[in-house]
C-alpha cells in the first residue's frame, strides 16, 4: 500500500508499523471513567467492513504517527492526518 503522508507525500506502507485503531487515542479520563469504560478502551474494537480510522507509525521515516482512514474492503485510503499536530510551522 501507499500512504500519503501529510508532510512527506506518498510513502510505502512497509515503512510504517500498524498500531491499531485510532480509538486508542480516546483514553478514558482517569478521574471520571468507570471500570466499563476502561474495559471497552482496552479490549473492545470495532471491526468495520468499510472505512476504518487507524494509527500508522512511520517508524522507517519521520516517526510521526498518522491517523489513516482506510476502507477495509478495498484498502482505499481517503484521509491521512498527523496524530500530533505539528507546531506553527513544520
Amino acid at each position: 500500500m501507499i500512504i500519503h503522508h501529510p508532510l512527506l507525500g506518498p510513502r510505502d506502507s512497509a515503512e510504517f508499523v500498524y498500531l491499531g485503531a485510532a480509538a486508542l487515542m480516546d483514553r478514558p479520563d482517569p478521574e471520571t471513567a468507570s471500570a466499563d469504560d476502561w474495559h471497552d478502551y482496552a479490549y473492545l474494537r470495532d471491526n468495520p467492513a468499510g472505512p476504518h480510522r487507524e494509527l500508522w507509525f512511520h517508524e522507517g521515516g519521520d516517526r510521526s504517527i498518522l491517523i489513516v482512514t482506510r476502507d477495509t474492503t478495498t484498502h482505499e485510503i481517503t484521509d491521512v492526518a498527523l496524530a500530533r499536530p505539528a507546531g506553527a510551522q513544520i
Binding site: 512527506l8 516517526r63 513544520i90
Partner: peptide, 21 residues
C-alpha cells in the same frame, strides 16, 4: 529545511528529520 529537504551551508548542514526536528 522543510520536510524532505536539507541545507548545505557552513558551518552546519541540516536535514529535516521530523516535524519541528
Amino acid at each position: 529545511p522543510p520536510p524532505g529537504r536539507t541545507t548545505a551551508n557552513a558551518p552546519f548542514e541540516s536535514i529535516w528529520t521530523g516535524p519541528d526536528q
